[in-house]
């Protein structure tokens, strides 16, 4: 039984069957990649996991509880964090403030009227946020406004914001999309480090084979809304069906 169990999930958009009976099981403390050509339904699947879309059929269980019908913030409070395709961070705030927000969300829940406390005096949380910034090598940028940072740094910060919440499952939506090679390698290194040093389960949706094969423990190949095969990276590489559906076309 995996930490995330997707059973028979289907989703239609009008006449288009975006997902048809998807079954997926993500084992705890593993890195599970979901790959597939454009339009395979990868992003739709991810949106069903985080509460942005509600599937027409099937069930999504996280740690024994259904996530369907819950709001994104409730799902996050259950222990699922999400990294977006284009980094979503608080552009008007400093790196440090960006880090404090998830810390408060983790401690205080979805809402708390803490209007008379002082951000800087929450020693425990400040320490936690700063330790996380040290871990991702961004502590020297803590007073910087995030709007002016490079894409790689934004991604790094977004990842740190997710990790500081100590999620049980981290969802990554094409974490290296649109990145320069150097930034991509940095991101892979960071993800590898996260995988080695933390007890965390990751589900990655990715286009870039280089990223997938250097990180994933298991890979699910999605084509036209249904899982084609699921196996270890080595087996996937040589799988004839995958070559046909994906590798042959895209790379």
């Amino acid at each position: 039984m995996g930490i995330l169990e997707v059973k028979d999930v289907g989703k239609r958009f009008g006449g288009l069957q975006a997902l048809g009976d998807v079954n997926l099981s993500v084992a705890e403390n593993s890195v599970h990649a979901i790959i597939g050509p454009n339009g395979a339904g990868k992003s739709t699947l991810l949106n069903c996991l985080v509460g942005k879309l509600i599937p027409d059929s099937g069930s999504v269980m996280f740690d024994g509880q259904s996530v369907l019908g819950r709001k994104p913030y409730e799902i996050n409070q259950m222990g699922i964090s999400r990294v977006f395709q284009t980094p979503e961070i608080f552009g008007d705030l400093t790196v440090f403030e960006n880090m404090m927000i998830p810390c408060f969300a983790k401690r205080d829940g979805a809402f708390r009227l803490h209007a008379l406390e002082n951000v800087g005096r929450e020693r425990d949380l400040v320490e936690k946020a700063e330790q996380m910034l040290i871990d991702v090598n961004m502590i020297d940028k803590r007073h910087m406004h995030t709007a002016s940072m490079s894409r790689g740094d934004k991604r790094r910060l977004e990842m740190a914001m997710c990790l500081v919440q100590e999620p049980r499952l981290l969802l990554l939506d094409e974490p290296t999309a649109g990145m320069a090679r150097a930034d991509t390698n940095n991101t892979i290194d960071l993800l590898k480090e996260i995988k080695e040093t933390r007890d965390i389960t990751m589900a990655i949706i990715e286009h870039d084979m280089h990223v997938v094969f250097s990180l994933a423990d298991r890979i699910t190949v999605l084509a036209q809304g249904t899982p084609l095969v699921e196996d270890t990276p080595d087996k996937i590489k040589g799988h004839p069906k995958v070559r046909e559906a994906y590798l042959g076309e895209a790379h």
């Binding site: 709001k71 913030y73 409070q77 964090s81 979503e88 983790k106 979805a110």
Partner: peptide, 13 residues
């Protein structure tokens, strides 16, 4: 003001 999307996915209502 900065990013409501990120707030939702950070567990904040």
């Amino acid at each position: 003001k900065s990013n409501q999307q990120r707030m939702y996915y950070t567990g904040l209502n």
